[in-house]
Design a protein around this nucleic acid. Structure first.
Length: 424
RNA sequence: GGACACGUGGCCGAGUGGUUGAAGGCGCGCCCCUGCUAAGGGUGUAAACGGGCAACCGUUUCGAGGGUUCGAAUCCCUUCGUGUCCGCCA
């Protein structure tokens, strides 16, 4: 959520930024609304002040047993004006709020222009793509042949875009979860959280999924929403808080299941585990001072990269262009892992700096050393998507006979297993 | 799901219609004092918004929303949350 006062003072800057997002300029309109709101408020406050004074006098007079008929009649008249002014100013301020809450964050200066992912900018490539002396299979075929991945049964009970992992693949998923959480808690000093998976509107408004993107979410019949990412509960831990600046940065990590309706992605990635309605993900969230968020963003990216480095999976890092940037983000790095069967890199992590965009929506603030209160900055990133990590391992570590080697760092989590092979 | 109770400032906790943004305590800040024993005294200490160069002034806020009233933390309604007991269940 943008600060209306900031927009008012930076009309050109603001509209230029929105233009990069292909959003028509609204700053003049909002600013005008705001000015009329301030005018109404001023008038209203004068009348409220009069009413308060008169009511005090009535109270004093009544205590003395004096007659207050005159005063009471005067205030009664005032009251009508107050009510009508209040209605007007409420409706204008609601309009302003409705305007502001659907305007996305401003892209950072170093976010490339562009309307779709083709304009994303590659900034780093890491690792060697595996060379196979045979035609590498896709992960779903590998899983099927191992008899450890069942899309058909999942479809019978849940429909499309669900999967059942069995036996060693279920273990591999669990191993990945533990491995990632251990790295982030022990090496990167994130605090592990086990949050709710169901949240109310307010939480999703805070992180920016609502009110605009309800179509992408699942809703229960009890007015809860299933979280699309742990970013939602993790970031909302600081909602409505005033945090002493000495307590920052706060770094949280969590393993959760993520639920996404995938409305509008019909036909995309219909095969395999790439795009499911539910998947597990280890998330990273940082709450930092404004001046620290740029550095924290780099740190977060390197924390996510660390996972892929240790798993020895080839990847690249891109900066998302304006057209690909999420609603709440000012700048986003995507980490893309190499998938041999597709002969391309696919997203496995997304690390975003939201600046004060989310913190203003959820009223998350800090008290600095001068005792002043200001919004914190929030960042979130995947560290990393578990399902996609699993499928990347299957594809990158596959052998000709259909077996799959286990990355060295995962062996302790796999009961010492070196390889997943077809059960005899 | 049934019954009852409760939601006040960083925390605890008074406050059932009238100069109450809110006693008192704790905590914290600043200042002072100090050879009567791990202390005493003074003073300050909410947020948001609006106006003002500023000092400062004003408005709103006692879970949230609405209502009654000249006036509401206090009364009424709705709602959310919490606690306890009962029922049910992992």
């Amino acid at each position: 959520m943008h600060d209306i006062k900031w927009i008012k003072e930076n009309i050109v800057l603001f509209d230029t930024a929105m233009k990069r997002r292909s959003i028509p300029s609204v700053s003049i309109e909002v600013t005008k609304l705001y000015e009329s709101y301030v005018a109404l408020l001023l008038q209203l406050q004068i009348l409220q002040n009069e009413r308060n004074n008169s009511s005090k006098i009535i109270g004093i007079k009544k205590a003395k047993g004096e007659d207050t008929k005159l005063e009471m009649e005067q205030v009664a008249k005032l009251k009508l004006d107050i009510i009508s002014l209040q209605e007007k100013s409420n409706s204008v301020s609601l309009k302003i709020k409705q305007f502001l809450e659907v305007i996305p964050n401003i892209p950072s200066e170093d976010t490339p222009d562009g309307v779709n992912e083709e304009s994303n900018k590659e900034i780093k490539v890491f690792g060697n793509k595996p060379v196979f002396p045979f035609k590498p299979l896709s992960h779903d075929v590998i899983g099927y042949k191992l008899n450890m991945m069942d899309f058909d049964k999942a479809a019978d009970m849940s429909g499309a875009r669900f999967v059942i992992l069995k036996d060693k693949l279920a273990l591999l998923e669990r191993a990945l979860c533990s491995f990632m959480l251990n790295i982030h808690t022990q090496k990167h000093k994130y605090i592990e959280i086990s949050p709710p998976s169901l949240v109310r509107d307010k939480a999703l408004f805070g992180t920016g999924q609502l009110p605009k993107f309800s179509k992408d979410l699942f809703k229960t019949n009890s007015d809860h929403w299933l979280i699309p990412t742990a970013e939602v509960p993790l970031t909302n831990i600081v909602a409505d808080e005033i945090i002493p600046s000495v307590s920052l940065p706060i770094r949280y990590t969590a393993l959760t299941t993520c639920f996404r309706s995938e409305a509008g992605s019909a036909g995309q990635d219909t095969k395999g585990m790439i795009r499911l309605h539910e998947f597990k993900k280890v998330e990273l969230v940082s709450i930092v001072k404004a001046e620290d968020s740029v550095a924290e963003h780099e740190r977060m990216l390197s924390c996510a990269e660390e996972i892929l480095k240790q798993l020895e999976l080839p990847y690249r890092v891109v900066i998302l262009c304006c057209g690909d940037l999420g609603f709440s983000a000012s700048k986003t790095y995507d980490i893309e892992v190499w998938l041999p069967s597709q002969n391309q890199y696919r997203e496995i992590s997304s690390c975003s700096n939201c600046l004060s965009f989310q913190s203003r929506r959820m009223n998350a603030r800090m008290r600095n050393l001068n005792n002043d209160i200001e919004p914190v900055h929030t960042l979130n990133g995947s560290g990393v998507a578990v399902g996609r990590a699993l499928l990347a391992i299957l594809e990158n570590y596959q052998n000709k006979d259909g077996s799959v080697n286990i990355p060295v760092v995962l062996k302790p989590y796999m009961n010492g297993l070196d390889m997943i092979a077809l059960n005899e």
